[in-house]
Amino acid sequence: MQIMTRLIALSRAMQLRRQFREINKTLELLPPAARRQLAGIALREFTSASKSEFPHLYATPPEEKYRPWGSGTDIGLERLRSDNLQVRLRGVALWLTVVFHETKDSPFGEQQELHRQAMRCLRSLKEGVPADDLSRWMIEGAEAA
């Protein structure tokens, strides 16, 4: 059973790494204003996901909750391929949120590395937002909760 679990985790890590390359390329091409927007959207997605019973299954339809992993990353990637900038930004934020929660406590090295890469992306988004905006978003998020 351990071999099967390891094989499933490895295949999932490979799939997420392929998707991450596309996400990362999109992030690199975003202008600063869009990156600030993305930071705000990502903060809202993280807030919503953290309120979920299973954050790694965030955005997954209820009938699919017994799959080994959710469909949030696939939905995020699909949105990323949209022509509309807002939809693309929401897709990136959703993808980063789900991958963060999915890989957070993983015992597998490949998924831990992916978690670190997602954290780097989130940190770079956070660093691109002025401190005043960030604190205002945090206050608004706390009030909404």
Rank of each mutant, 00 (worst) to 15 (best):
M1W: 08
M1T: 13
M1F: 05
Q2P: 03
Q2A: 06
Q2L: 12
R6T: 13
L7S: 13
A9W: 00
L10K: 02
L10M: 12
S11M: 11
M14Q: 14
Q15S: 15
L16V: 07
R17N: 10
Q19P: 01
F20T: 02
F20P: 00
E22G: 05
E22Y: 04
E22L: 13
I23D: 00
I23W: 00
I23G: 03
I23T: 09
N24Q: 15
K25F: 09
T26K: 14
T26M: 10
L30T: 03
L30S: 10
P31F: 09
P31H: 10
P32R: 07
P32A: 03
A33P: 00
A34C: 06
R36G: 03
Q37N: 14
L38C: 03
L38V: 03
G40S: 04
G40E: 06
I41D: 01
I41E: 08
E45Y: 10
F46Q: 05
T47M: 11
S48F: 11
S48V: 12
S48Q: 14
K51H: 15
S52W: 08
S52D: 14
F54E: 13
F54P: 02
P55M: 01
H56P: 06
Y58E: 04
A59T: 15
A59I: 12
T60P: 06
T60G: 03
E63Q: 15
E63V: 11
E63R: 15
E63N: 13
E64V: 10
P68L: 06
S71H: 13
G76D: 02
E78D: 13
R79D: 11
R79P: 01
L80C: 07
L80V: 00
S82C: 06
D83G: 14
D83T: 15
N84Q: 11
L85V: 10
L85R: 10
L85D: 09
Q86M: 14
V87P: 01
V87Q: 15
V87K: 08
R88P: 02
L89A: 02
R90L: 10
G91I: 03
G91V: 07
V92S: 06
L94C: 08
L94N: 03
L94A: 06
L94H: 01
W95H: 01
W95Y: 04
W95A: 04
L96W: 00
L96F: 05
V99E: 02
V99G: 01
V99M: 08
F100W: 11
F100N: 03
F100M: 05
H101V: 01
E102L: 12
E102Y: 08
T103D: 09
D105A: 07
D105F: 09
D105Y: 10
S106V: 06
P107N: 08
P107G: 01
F108I: 07
F108G: 04
G109C: 10
E110R: 06
Q112C: 05
Q112F: 03
Q112M: 08
E113I: 14
E113T: 11
L114R: 01
L114K: 00
H115Q: 04
A118Q: 03
M119E: 13
M119V: 13
M119C: 14
L122E: 07
S124C: 12
L125Y: 05
G128E: 07
G128T: 07
V129N: 02
P130D: 14
P130M: 02
P130W: 05
P130R: 05
A131K: 09
D132E: 14
D132C: 10
D133T: 09
W137H: 04
W137Q: 09
W137P: 00
G141M: 08
G141A: 12
A142Y: 15
A142W: 15
E143T: 15
A145K: 11
A145I: 14
